[in-house]
Amino acid sequence: MKRWLTWIYISVLLLAILLALSVGASHLEHLWQVLFHPSARTFLGDHNILWQIRIPRIVTAILVGASLGAAGVMAQGACNNPLAEPAIVGTSAGAAFGVVAGLLANIVTIGSLGAIGCGIAGGLIASLLTLHLARNRDAQASVVLIIVGIATSATIAALVGITTSMISRADARSVSFWAWGSLALTTGKDLWVLFPVVVIGIGAAWFIAPALDVLSLGDSTARHIGMDPVKTRRIALIALSVLVAGSVSTVGTIAFLGLAAPHIARLGFGPRHRPLVLHSALIGAVILLIADTGARTVAAPSELPIGLITALIGAPILITLVRRNIDVWRVQ
């Protein structure tokens, strides 16, 4: 494994954190004083912006980016398909629908553990539905899975749009939030719920990762070697749903990151899924933090949808890397 590359990504993340702390719609004149003396109330304006808005948002971007990076590894590994990502196999739309349905039924509030629970249920049901509909006799055909996943996602996303327009609660999010995502509404309170969910999700992904190495040889070879492909896929989908639900219920749907981060990580660290989970999470965190800093500063004081920025940053990186090293994942 290339340790130096890991340290480069960690350094980039630290630089991105510094950048995200320093820039924003308001210029913080006393940034370093309020950062290193959080209990002092000397510069109250700067203090409130930094500790109540900027830092929670930075931590959220890191957690959500890490979630989506690891989720992408689970989606691609479970489906044995380089095109799979949470937004394609139905997990993101399912999680969004789960949260919106919970809000409509008035049983959860946004950002709560209950909302994430609804998101996990929705994401898991949608992913399992995609797998079930794509079942081609006794084999799981990868191409069929992607086509069915796109159709399932589109159908559920439409239901999310319709359901969202039926909710009149003050804390309900907009259609644009569920479609493109935004970190603008995150608060420090969200982190207490999001953090354990991300840790559990990445832990589950780490646990099942070695089995995904074997699954990449195909279902029948996996069985011949002695690994149950159905059980492995189910556990990977549960990890995927937990990771995606935490992120979707907090910041809405952010597509592309779950596709790009695993590919970028794979080019640097090889195909083994265990190191891939951690490095894809790291790269996801870097990309989302830079994207969010861009989203809130490029057109300040207005904000751009974060999904647009992740696509702008991730797509060229992905295309460049994949063109230079096309034997990383051979499509059958």
């Binding site: 990449s216 002695g226 090889g270 195909p271 051979r330």
Partner: peptide, 17 residues
């Protein structure tokens, strides 16, 4: 898997292990 091993004609390798 402990009793029989199989080499199938259609074995494909998709990841660069």
């Amino acid at each position: 898997a402990r009793i029989r091993a199989v080499s199938s004609q259609s074995q494909r390798f998709s990841l660069a292990f």
